[in-house]
Simulated scan of single mutants.
Amino acid sequence: MPILVRSASLTKYSEIARHVGIDPVRALREAGLDPSCLTTPDLRIPEASLARVFEVSLASGAGRAESRTLGARIGEAWRLSDFGSLSLLLQHQPTLREALARIEPYRHMLSDSVSVQVEEVENTAALHVALVTARPDPGPEIVELTVGAVLSLVRAMLGAQYAPRAVHFAHAAPERLQVHRRFFGARIEFGSEFDGIVLARADLDRANPLADVHLARYAQDLLDLQPRFGEVSLADDVRRAIHLLLPRGAGAIEPVSERLGLTPRTLQRQLEQRGERFSSLVNEVRASLAMRYLAQPRQSVSDISDRLGFSEPSAFSRWFSAEFGQPPSRWRTACFARGRDGH
């Protein structure tokens, strides 16, 4: 079953693409999408096709450095209303914490790909953004767009000029950072251990002056009346949870099942009824994350081994060799060589 997302990001893409010298209609057609996606934000499109639009845009040769800012520019243009039918419910939540908690139950209205997890440590909160895609690396533009959309929600709740403590990206920095610094702020860390936003823990519970409990209840009633298209995929829910929790040392079945509101035994049973195994899903996500981390030169093989839950680098190397037919160091060298050659 394909991973689907709303086409709202493409309605933003249209004007921004023209600004940097890209023909948006041609890009969509090359990606196999109907140009109506540029003006219809509530269509459900394959996430892979959205990624293909960015690939075509980057390959167009029209302002390549500017094309590399497309994700950040779309995030900058994002508004609360771009969350579609969910926006009224989010707008009237009493705090940012409550708004973030409302996303997961209605995530199917936004994206099959995205999950947001709040991690709190002392006086700091980190909003971890994870994307489950059919590709090992979702691509920097998709990541920056998604983190940008989350930041737009943060600013809708905390004020348009709100500056987070830091914004983190696992991918390497682009050639130019003017757009990124203008939107995300000066404190951007690339080559990080996660994608997401760091803020003061107290900001999660700062009162939203626009909150209206009656409008929130009305919005929720309307959302609950809307039909849900397609079946809920438990395996995809597990994949998203593993993506978020594995790099934080919590990829075992207990924390994953807790995030999904199930007991470990129930989760195992329901997966087996669908022909899936938890260990296979962990291995799948681990392989995807391994390739993504190895493609970033700042991350050592030892650090990657630890983040993926291996007791020592040698165990990671044996597992990787069995999965990919070569040790992680050799795979990484070949990856960097392809990058230098432009392939």
Score class of each variant (00 low, 15 high):
184 F>E: 00
218 Y>C: 10
164 P>C: 04
262 L>P: 02
176 R>M: 08
267 L>S: 09
236 D>I: 14
197 I>K: 02
299 Q>S: 12
266 T>L: 05
215 L>N: 11
192 S>M: 06
198 V>F: 04
202 A>C: 03
241 A>W: 09
246 L>K: 02
170 A>N: 01
201 R>A: 10
206 R>V: 02
202 A>K: 08
276 E>I: 03
174 P>W: 05
208 N>L: 08
235 A>N: 06
231 E>F: 00
264 P>W: 02
288 S>H: 12
198 V>W: 01
273 Q>S: 15
194 F>K: 09
261 G>F: 01
263 T>G: 13
209 P>T: 06
233 S>K: 07
228 R>A: 11
210 L>P: 04
213 V>K: 01
187 R>T: 10
191 G>K: 10
274 R>P: 04
189 E>G: 14
289 L>V: 08
299 Q>W: 15
197 I>V: 07
278 F>P: 04
275 G>W: 09
288 S>A: 15
248 R>F: 14
264 P>V: 03
227 P>Y: 01
247 P>A: 04
260 L>C: 09
271 L>R: 05
242 I>Y: 08
239 R>S: 05
260 L>V: 09
273 Q>W: 15
291 M>W: 14
242 I>C: 01
165 R>H: 05
175 E>A: 15
233 S>E: 11
193 E>T: 15
173 A>M: 04
254 E>G: 14
222 L>C: 11
243 H>L: 00
274 R>F: 06
264 P>K: 07
265 R>L: 03
171 H>W: 07
233 S>Q: 11
205 D>N: 08
225 L>K: 11
263 T>Q: 07
211 A>K: 00
